[in-house]
Design a protein around this nucleic acid. Structure first.
Ligand code: MN
Ligand code: MN
Ligand code: ZN
Ligand code: ZN
Lengths: 144, 144
DNA sequence: CGCATTTTTGCAACGTTGTTGCGAATTTAA
DNA sequence: TTAAATTCGCAACAACGTTGCAAAAATGCG
């Protein structure tokens, strides 16, 4: 997908979710569309966008999260990671049942959109609502 | 298991791992043995032990982690959770392949020691080393 | 046991991540 | 174009975690 196509799609997505189309939101969302499967931390965005205020990045990530544009990925180190949702996600209603991969060599976090989190049978009395699966190891690039 | 038995076992475990047996370590480990399947946060320990220094708690958790007495549980909110390892875990070599359950009602995090994380087939080129699975929903107690 | 050595603890100070309040700037809608 | 609503940047704060260092406690040995 070309860069201009991404920018068109971004404006459209924002309006669809009832958000105003601002320069900052477009810039941040553009980073995610540049590498669709990749998760980003707040710090990654701050670094790549140089001059944007920290608080604006935090608030934008929250907005995108609740509007169903991004989802979070649980990780052992304490920092939040965000990645693009598929089109089926909407405001307050996520459909992200895929496995996440964390490369312990290069640090990249990847959505394995094709791999669905397998069901497990819980002990009597437990009711599952959401299942998260994170696999760590070495990624395609680091294995060459 | 009785309280005195726990205290015996705790001293034994510490010596086995080559750690000195100190009052603080015994107190912290005792909390974990009091409710074996339950995970604890730094803040839980600080609250339950009242007068212990924050830094001592952090350092003790790290020590127990690297000695194979505790393992961490990845979670979406940014705080680290710790739970007792099984006997098969040793220094720098964990064997924790069980599913974790997080109750979104009462907040408890539980090791489902009997439920093994299922295998998944990764795309070509990825090499898995560790797999984490966290299921959230409502626990036995909250479902009554 | 008594004593020297090693390890742990508490305190203070600092770093990082994330949140909140508020006025200025931007976006939207009329 | 203009007024209202929203967003942005700054400052200040809070929570979580780390590091250096001196005092206290644990360990090992004669
Ligand atoms: Mn994902
Ligand atoms: Mn566990
Ligand atoms: Zn990699
Ligand atoms: Zn519960």
């Amino acid at each position: 997908m070309s860069d201009t196509n991404n920018i068109d799609k971004i404006g459209q997505l924002l309006r669809q979710g009832g958000m105003s189309v601002t320069e900052k939101r477009v810039q941040i969302l553009h980073l995610f569309f540049a590498q669709p499967g990749n998760a980003l931390r707040h710090a990654d965005i701050e670094q790549q966008l140089g001059s944007m205020d920290r608080v604006t990045i935090y608030r934008t990530l929250h907005t995108f999260l609740e509007k169903g544009l991004l989802h979070t990925i649980p990780n052992a180190d304490g920092t939040a990671m965000y990645a693009l949702c598929k089109d089926e996600c909407h405001e307050g209603h996520h459909h992200d049942d895929h496995v996440h991969f964390l490369c312990s060599q290069c640090g990249v976090t990847i959505c394995l959109d094709g791999i669905v989190v397998p069901q497990v049978k819980l002990p009597q009395g437990y009711a599952a609502r959401q299942m998260e699966m994170v696999i760590s190891g070495t990624c395609q690039t680091c294995n060459i």
